[in-house]
């Protein structure tokens, strides 16, 4: 095996060849947005953006061929910052790790649901590496942060070789494992809107084990209440019960104008179950997932509601 080191400017660039002289994988770690975009635009073969690697690297071990080019984006400052804007919103870099997000007390206070969803991913070891952008772009139906990100009404800043665009998070995942991003595009950061007073979110998932397991069903609720404790804005998103996260608009409408009384919650639970389209597999039957999602959404709604009243 022949390997050639190269350094271009400040960025680190390396390449590994097979004995036959073909490229196994190039790796580069650009330090500016423009360099990432240039690298993405110039790539001719398969290219993968690399953040924490917790989804990509296990796949190499499983025998999936590495891409011709791996672009490590986490040295670009815009992908690593968490910043509160003057108007109250937040910018979270796509390559912020779970550990970095949990440590940001202001963010955790404003967005307890989104941050607890991110914190559920894997172990301490995984939290050191797994990123918010990676969790979204891996496009798993069971990804924990995604329902909470959608419920938060977050928007993505996307950069590509011919400029930038912005999309709401729910437009990104198109099917299991696939996003709408072009090969020359990546997500730079997420923008979370400013919070009204008396707003809060919550996320709950069901896993057969308490730790180190993937959700068989999950629910995120983000809501706002008025001075009388009546819900006046509400977003409900369900995970792992369809090929892509389910934005449960008809269910959220049931909570609007209510104080989450028992009769309202009963109708809410029935509507949630009606919106589930889960698969049956060895980790849970479709019937069980449908039932448990209603319970999760109901409890997440109560948690978000009680947090919003605080």
């Amino acid at each position: 095996m022949l390997r050639i080191p190269l350094k271009s400017g400040k960025w680190f660039f390396a390449i590994t060849f097979s004995a036959a002289g073909t490229v196994i994988m190039e790796y580069c770690a650009p330090v500016t947005l423009a360099e990432v975009c240039a690298a993405l635009g110039a790539a001719s073969g398969t290219v993968k953006v690399f953040a924490g690697g917790t989804d990509l690297l296990p796949r190499f071990v499983a025998g999936v061929n590495p891409p011709a080019l791996l672009i490590d984006i986490k040295h670009v400052p815009e992908t690593r910052e968490i910043r509160r804007l003057a108007e109250g919103g937040f910018v979270i870099g796509s390559a912020c790790s779970g550990g970095q997000i949990s440590a940001h007390t202001e963010l955790v206070r404003s967005w307890p649901g989104l941050t607890e969803a991110m914190d559920l991913i894997g172990s301490v070891q995984i939290q050191s590496r797994a990123t918010l952008g990676g969790n979204l772009c891996n496009a798993s139906p069971a990804a924990d942060s995604v329902p909470a990100l959608i419920a938060s009404r977050a928007r993505c800043r996307i950069a590509g070789s011919d400029g930038e665009r912005e999309l709401p998070v729910e437009d990104i995942i198109v099917s299991p494992g696939r996003t709408c991003l072009r090969q020359d595009e990546f997500i730079v950061s997420f923008f979370l809107p400013a919070r009204n007073p008396r707003s809060a979110d919550a996320y709950l998932r069901m896993t057969p084990r308490t730790e180190m397991d993937i959700a068989i069903a999950s629910a995120a609720v983000n809501l706002t209440v008025d001075e009388q404790g009546v819900v006046n804005e509400c977003h409900v998103v369900l995970g792992a019960v369809g090929p892509v996260p389910v934005y449960a608009l008809p269910a959220a409408r049931i909570l609007l104008g209510s104080r989450l009384d028992e009769e309202v919650r009963q109708r809410f639970r029935r509507q949630i179950s009606a919106l589930c389209r889960p698969i049956s597999d060895k980790r849970g039957s479709a019937e069980y997932r449908t039932d448990v999602t209603a319970v999760l959404a109901d409890r997440a709604a109560m948690t978000a509601y009680n947090r919003a009243l605080l």
Binding site: T54, L57, Q125, M212
Partner: peptide, 27 residues
Amino acid sequence: CGTGDCGACSVIMNGELVCACLVLAVE
């Protein structure tokens, strides 16, 4: 495991606990 599940490869990198099997040497 080589896939981040077992923790047998845990090391501390720049003050953070990581699975060495999920870090590329070039990083």
